[in-house]
C-alpha cells in the first residue's frame, strides 16, 4: 500500500470507508431516480401526443436517421462495458487498466456526440428542424412538429448529460492516473459508473421512442 493509501480516512460523519462508499452509491441511486422523473416529464408529453397523433408520429419518425441512431446505441452500450471494466480494474487495484478503460469510455462518449452532431446536420438538410428549417413531407405539419420538438429537446438534454459524464470520466481518469484508487477505495469511480450507465439507459429508451417506429407501414 502506498503512503497515500494509508492516509485515507472516512469523513467525520461516517464510521468507516465502507459506510462512506455505500452511502455515496445510495445517494447516486436516489439522484438517478430524480433523473428518471426528469426525463419522464418529457416522455409523458411524448406519450400524450403519441396517443393523439399516432399516424403523424409514425410519418415523422420515418425521417429520423436510423443508421446513426443505431450506431450511436452500439457506441454507448460499448462505453458502458468499458466503464464497468474500469471499475473492475479498480477493484483489482490495477492502475494502468483503469486509466485506459476510462479514456476509452470518454472517447466513445465523444464519438457519440460527434455522430449526433452530424445527425443534426442531416436533420437540417431534411428540413425537419422546427423554427430553423421545417418543411415536413408527410403528415399534419403541427403534429409532425411536435414530434421533432420532442426529438430535439430529448436528444439535446441527453447530450448535455453525456457531456457532463465525459467530463466526470476524464476527471476520474486523472485521479486514477495519480493513484487515487490504488488503496481499494474507489466509490467515486463507482458513482460515476452508475451515472454513465444511466445516461446509456436513457438513450436506449430515446432510441426506441424515436427511430424504429413508423418504418414498417
Amino acid at each position: 500500500m502506498s503512503q497515500r493509501a494509508a492516509a485515507l480516512k472516512p469523513e467525520m460523519q461516517y464510521a468507516d470507508l465502507a459506510q462512506q462508499g455505500e452511502t455515496a452509491q445510495l445517494g447516486m441511486w436516489i439522484f438517478l431516480a430524480t433523473e428518471v422523473l426528469f426525463f419522464g416529464g418529457m416522455m409523458a408529453a411524448y406519450l400524450a401526443y403519441r396517443m393523439t397523433y399516432n399516424a403523424d408520429f409514425d410519418a415523422a419518425a420515418k425521417e429520423s436517421v436510423i443508421w446513426i441512431g443505431s450506431v450511436n446505441t452500439a457506441v454507448l452500450v460499448t462505453s458502458s462495458l468499458t466503464m464497468v471494466m474500469a471499475i473492475h480494474a479498480a477493484a483489482e487495484r490495477e492502475r494502468q487498466p483503469i486509466v485506459y478503460f476510462l479514456l476509452a469510455t470518454a472517447a466513445l462518449g465523444l464519438i457519440f456526440l460527434g455522430l449526433k452532431g452530424y445527425e443534426y446536420v442531416e436533420d437540417y438538410n431534411d428540413a425537419v428542424v422546427p423554427v430553423l428549417n421545417f418543411h415536413p413531407k408527410e403528415g399534419n405539419p403541427g403534429a409532425v412538429e411536435l414530434f421533432w420538438l420532442f426529438y430535439f429537446y430529448a436528444t439535446l438534454l441527453h447530450a448535455v448529460h453525456l457531456t457532463i459524464g465525459i467530463i466526470l470520466v476524464f476527471f476520474m481518469a486523472v485521479r486514477a492516473k495519480r493513484g487515487a484508487f490504488d488503496a481499494g477505495y474507489y466509490a467515486p469511480l463507482e458513482v460515476v459508473g452508475l451515472y454513465w450507465s444511466f445516461v446509456d439507459t436513457v438513450w436506449v429508451f430515446l432510441f426506441a421512442l424515436i427511430y424504429p417506429i413508423g418504418r414498417s407501414g
Binding site: I66, V204, P212
Partner: peptide, 24 residues
C-alpha cells in the same frame, strides 16, 4: 439492438409502437 432495428422494417401492425419499448 439488432433485433430492434430489423423489426422496425417488418409489418407488425399495431405492435410497432410497443415492440421497441419492450426491447428498450
Amino acid at each position: 439492438l439488432g433485433i430492434n432495428v430489423l423489426l422496425a422494417y417488418q409489418p407488425i401492425g399495431g405492435l410497432h409502437g410497443f415492440v421497441p419499448i419492450g426491447i428498450a
